[in-house]
Amino acid sequence: MGYYRIDPDSDRQFVEEFRRTPVGKHSPGLMRVLNALRHDPSGKQIVLFCRKPFAEWQIAEMPADRRQPLVFEERPIFTDRDEAEREVFRRRWHAATGERINLSLGATAGA
């Protein structure tokens, strides 16, 4: 495939940048990492369902065949949207590199 492949050694520097600022102006290096991580050739799409405006979110997934129902994750319930961004980053990083990283700020992800 022609798109960028994550190199866990050289790209690890961008993990901290994402942890600090999940949404916002990003460096070209982090942009490249995010563009690669956010590309899912399966056609599935992770989304963030807002249960209560500005209060509670949960991760859901759209199947590749959009005629099939959304799949909601019952847990965790996020009370900070940035924590959901970090959780999805963590999963995608693991899928791309095999590495487990801990991005959580520790206080806001619910049980």
Partner: peptide, 8 residues
């Protein structure tokens, strides 16, 4: 969008 897609 530069962030997860929000669904209400």
């Amino acid at each position: 969008m530069g962030r997860l897609l929000h669904f209400g």
